Simulated assay, not measured.
Amino acid sequence: MDYELAVDGGPDSIPGGTSVLLVHPSTAETDRVDTDFLKKDTDHFLVISTRTTAREVTQKLDYYDVDEDRAVILDTLSVERGYSRRTRDDVHYVSSPDDTDGIVEQTKQFLESHDGKIRLSFDSVTELAYYAGEEEARDAVERILDLLVDHDAVGLFHLSTEVHDEDVLEGYRDRFDVVIDLAEDDSIDVQD
Rank of each mutant, 00 (worst) to 15 (best):
M1K: 10
L5H: 02
D8Y: 11
D8N: 13
G17P: 05
T18W: 03
S19K: 02
V20S: 01
L21M: 13
L22N: 07
A28E: 01
V33T: 12
K40H: 09
S49M: 00
T50V: 10
T58K: 14
L61F: 08
D67Q: 08
R70E: 14
R70Y: 01
A71P: 07
I73P: 00
L74D: 00
D75C: 07
V79E: 07
E80A: 12
R81T: 01
R86P: 00
D89N: 12
D90V: 04
V91C: 01
H92R: 15
Y93S: 00
Y93H: 07
P97M: 06
D99K: 04
D99A: 05
I103P: 03
F110R: 02
E112M: 10
E112W: 08
E112V: 03
K117Q: 11
I118D: 03
F122R: 02
T126N: 10
L128G: 00
L128A: 02
R138W: 12
D139V: 13
I144N: 01
L145P: 01
D146F: 04
L147T: 00
L147S: 01
L148G: 11
L148M: 15
L148Y: 08
V149E: 14
D150R: 12
A153Q: 06
G155Q: 05
L159P: 00
H164L: 11
E166D: 14
Y172C: 11
R173V: 10
D174K: 14
D174W: 09
D174N: 15
R175C: 07
I180W: 09
I180A: 08
D181E: 15
A183C: 05
A183F: 11
E184M: 09
D186E: 14
S187H: 09
I188R: 06
D189S: 15
D192A: 15
